[in-house]
Simulated scan of single mutants.
Amino acid sequence: MFEKERFDIVHVNGSPDHRLVMYAIFGLHGKRPRVVYTKHNSLPVGKHFGSQLRVKYATDHVIAVSHHTSRLLDGTPYAKREVSVIQNGVDVEHFHPFNDEASQHARLRMVGPEHAGKFIVGSVAGTADYKGWIDMVTAIASLPVRVRETMHILIAGESPSSAQRQQVAQLGMSKHVTFAENLLDVRSCIAAFDIGFVLSYAEAISFACREMMAMGKPVIVADCGGLPENVSDGEDGWIVPQRDPNAISSLLREIRGKPEALRAMGESARRKSEWTLLAQSLNS
């Protein structure tokens, strides 16, 4: 295929496809394409012989999707190549803030009239355990009853397991959490939020966080992996310690009654999304 199509550049983002490209290159006659490898997750990078071979024979440049992932390459064979940090971006025309009327309609549709008037804290990062969403449930469960009753959690992703639902029930939070489950289009879900959150225990950068910010939502992120690179703490979001529901509940008590401040932070989040896309365009 390489000989027929005569590609100038081939992109790889994992060991299996990287290895396959390397084998294909060995069989080429004449000029080979340049190979760009992207490090897009928080998994450790191999230092073994296979990595050395892939770097030597089939890696011309490396892209890291965050400074965090770039640091994971230190001391590995990939550090022998030039590494560019290009943070994930999102389509800011597709992910745009809804007006007040559309947002209210989204709230009614996503959580129903019973919860539409509450302070909605949400995430579209998914329901896997490592996404840390149970920490938000735990945090809100610890709030005084009068405060807790004014809040609701909305989470999009795979349908939670019975064990996960049991965790929520044991916290007395079943009626305070709506699982939107898999959505082809998460924009209405995001529009229903007052603020977003991504509290993962491992994360390279988070498309979900950037989607929420592009839609004008300030986001709470855990101090984990590349997540803190998304927000400026106190300006367009907040950074909390990883696996610390107490810190989250303290933050929620602080920000809950400041709607105008949250609106301004959401506007800052949107501006950052626009400027990030512009900066990437200028640097490409």
Rank of each mutant, 00 (worst) to 15 (best):
M1C: 11
G27T: 12
T178A: 03
Y78T: 00
N182E: 13
I195E: 03
A191K: 05
V240M: 04
I255K: 03
S51I: 00
A247K: 04
P245F: 12
V62E: 14
K118R: 06
S84N: 09
I190W: 02
Y57Q: 01
G27I: 07
V65S: 08
G27R: 13
R148N: 12
R243L: 10
T150K: 15
P77W: 10
D74R: 13
A180W: 08
V124W: 06
L251M: 01
V186S: 03
K118E: 01
A264I: 08
V186C: 03
W238P: 10
S162K: 13
S188A: 08
K4N: 04
I248V: 12
E5K: 02
R54K: 15
D244R: 05
I248K: 02
D129W: 14
A24H: 08
F2Q: 11
F119P: 11
A169H: 10
R243F: 07
E149F: 03
E181R: 01
P97C: 04
S232Y: 06
D223S: 12
I153F: 02
D17C: 13
H105G: 12
G14C: 12
C189L: 04
G30I: 04
G132W: 00
K131Q: 14
S42H: 14
E3M: 06
Q242M: 15
H94Q: 05
D135Q: 09
L108W: 08
S268I: 01
D91A: 08
H115M: 10
A269F: 07
D17S: 15
L262H: 10
L154F: 01
Q280P: 06
L251E: 03
V186T: 04
M110C: 00
R271P: 08
P218D: 12
A222R: 07
S42N: 13
D194A: 02
R210K: 06
H61L: 11
D60P: 01
V111R: 02
M136S: 14
F26S: 07
E3C: 05
P245N: 11
I205Y: 15
K80Q: 15
P77T: 07
L154I: 02
Y37L: 08
R71G: 09
R81N: 14
H48Q: 10
F26T: 03
V111N: 02
S66M: 06
S281W: 11
K56Q: 09
S249V: 06
